[in-house]
Amino acid sequence: MTPQETLQADPELSALEARVLDEVAAMLREVIGEEYVANMEITMDTSFAEDLELESIEFVTLSAQMRDRYGESVDFVGFLAELDVDRVIAMRVGDVVRFIAASLAEAGQAH
């Protein structure tokens, strides 16, 4: 899915969120690195546990990628550490995308 398609697919998504969604999806594909995920549509509703089967070790790699891309302004490690068990279970890509977009907007990196 191209960024344009993402935008059209979900009018509720801001341009920044759509951009971040594409970036996060690309990072997830790289972290998981398997064929099935290369062909999977990753949306705001994709769940980390059920759909992506992301293991705890893969969160470590993902957070390193996010640090490389977004730097200090996005504290993904802090975000994860604050989640209670039910939010960990239910976590969807959209939760992470919205957190990143909000962090970037706050840090003035939204452009």
Partner: peptide, 12 residues
């Protein structure tokens, strides 16, 4: 460190 990234799970 099973909950290295998920401190909330260990707290729970």
């Amino acid at each position: 460190e099973p909950f290295a990234m998920m401190a909330g799970v260990e707290r729970w």
